[in-house]
Design a protein around this nucleic acid. Sequence first.
DNA 1: CAGAATCCACAACGATACTG
DNA 2: CAGTATCGTTGTGGATTCTG
Lengths: 140, 140
Amino acid sequence: MGTLLKPENTGLPAPPRPTERPDPNHSDCRDVASVLSRVGDKWSVFVIMMLSDGPKRFNELKRMINGISQRMLTLTLRGLERDGLVTRTIFPTIPPRVDYELTDLGRGLQQPVKALGEWAIAHQQQIASARARFDERNDR
Amino acid sequence: MGTLLKPENTGLPAPPRPTERPDPNHSDCRDVASVLSRVGDKWSVFVIMMLSDGPKRFNELKRMINGISQRMLTLTLRGLERDGLVTRTIFPTIPPRVDYELTDLGRGLQQPVKALGEWAIAHQQQIASARARFDERNDR
DNA sequence: CAGAATCCACAACGATACTG
DNA sequence: CAGTATCGTTGTGGATTCTG
């Protein structure tokens, strides 16, 4: 990797290409990927958002996030807990009660995620119309 | 392909929420989800990063992104093109040549994505050790 | 209430072979 | 070179049922 491509494109002028260098941060790919995949997980992001304003109980989260199955909520929360993004607090009462709360780390992650969300909202129209155009071109 | 645009998170009925105000941007859940799922797609992010410093050819990208199959690269690029994030330029030469380049929209998306990536790098240690602790607690 | 366990459908992905 | 087509495997997630 990082090698320049061969000039076997014999004499094709083609458009000028900016000078290319090896990818600056390709060494961190794996670490970044692990976080991105957590963000890409739709449910994780929703959970983090729902926990913005304080701790929530299991079923409370389940009700807030419409459409999530109990299984996925469990798995999502476990993943977030494992990564140190949320804490899980058990109150040994009857019936049992479990609170989930963002850690400092989790609150930190919220910032970049929100930035992404705001970008999404700001450009959803452009994306939607781009899709429409693409699909129309391709449907025929 | 049409990945990950399931119509399920349609609206939080705002169930009995104890003490707080309605989530400011809960109405945009679906749009956000659609963008997040693209970001969550590992390959899309890598491609966008690789295109940071100018247009690239198909096989050039394939070589740069270690481990991607040619099929996934095709699908990923189609998705990005559909969303208006990259352009696809065909040079009808022999052998054929196709350049992919970020659009302004794509370059815009790069910023929040990079922020996320930087957060990931900055906190990978914390996450790693959180995972280690969690796993150890749980392995026994 | 908060989950663990099981079953199953289907989407995602990789490998391979073929084409203009 | 830049794809498309097909197949087989794995993974992901929903529905359901059971438990402390």
